[in-house]
């Protein structure tokens, strides 16, 4: 379902070209639970951003559900981000002026989901992440762990098959981090495809497949028990 073929990302910095990623060739099937590890600067975020259609590769092919999204227009990519993948950031990236409820609702507004259905879904998602009682709180009134759970709920809004998370626990204490991972395991059990970046070997051990990056290339890629 996810297929990267010789994907690379280069940055032109004056006369030097920085090779941030690749070439990377990789296939991830539906329902997989993948942890991406690697030292700082190894290209993890770069790869995740390309997978999440937040960024476009310099070279290579990206097939998402057999559709070549690497050539998509900005408008089409917006639609992919809206419907097909949910992205969870290290720094949450919630709208500060909107309530938890409204933040979760946002992707559905863009998908033009009816009001009734939105309400039903938001309530359901807040329940899943255990924050039904925080619906009317703004991000500033929530703890880090709670913010990240709202962000996960938002990622699930349009019921995408794929959830991508770039160091979702990076800004959290270990207890909150464990809660997020719990959520992920639950989503994995529900059949979602999960890919998350972490520096924490312990958290990575919960995943079924480990991909280790080094200098923008896949160094190790293996499945564990």
């Amino acid at each position: 379902m996810i297929s990267l073929n010789n994907i690379s990302k280069k940055y032109n910095m004056g006369h030097v070209t920085v090779n941030a990623l690749g070439p990377v060739t990789l296939t991830i099937h539906k329902g997989e639970f993948v942890a991406v590890l690697g030292p700082s600067g190894s290209g993890k975020s770069t790869m995740m951003n390309i997978l999440g259609c937040l960024d476009r590769p310099s070279l290579g092919e990206y097939l998402l559900d057999n559709t070549p999204v690497h050539g998509f227009s900005r408008t089409k990519l917006a639609r992919v981000r809206n419907m097909k993948v949910g992205f969870v950031f290290q720094s949450f990236n919630l709208l500060p002026f909107a309530t938890a409820y409204e933040n979760v609702e946002l992707p559905m507004l863009y998908a033009k989901i009816s009001g009734k259905e939105r309400e039903h879904t938001v309530k359901h998602l807040l329940e899943i992440v255990g924050l039904s009682d925080r619906a009317s709180h703004r991000p500033a009134e929530l703890s880090g762990g709670e913010r990240q759970r709202i962000a996960v709920a938002r990622a699930l809004a349009n019921n995408p098959d794929i959830i991508l998370a770039d160091e979702p626990t990076g800004n959290l204490d270990s207890k909150s981090g464990a809660e997020i991972l719990n959520l992920f395991e639950q989503l994995h059990a529900d059949g979602k495809t999960l890919i998350f970046v972490t520096h924490d070997e312990n958290l990575a051990s919960h995943a079924k497949r480990i991909i280790r990056l080094l200098d923008g290339k896949i160094n190790q890629d293996y499945t564990q028990n």
């Binding site: 999440g52 937040l54 900005r74 408008t75 917006a78 639609r79 981000r81 809206n82 419907m83 992205f87 950031f89 990236n93 919630l94 709208l95 946002l106 992707p107 863009y110 998908a111 938002r154 809004a157 349009n158």
Partner: peptide, 13 residues
């Protein structure tokens, strides 16, 4: 940043 967030969750440009 706000623009980035909105686009990240699928807002039409």
């Amino acid at each position: 940043r706000e623009i980035g967030i909105k686009m990240a969750v699928g807002a039409h440009p």
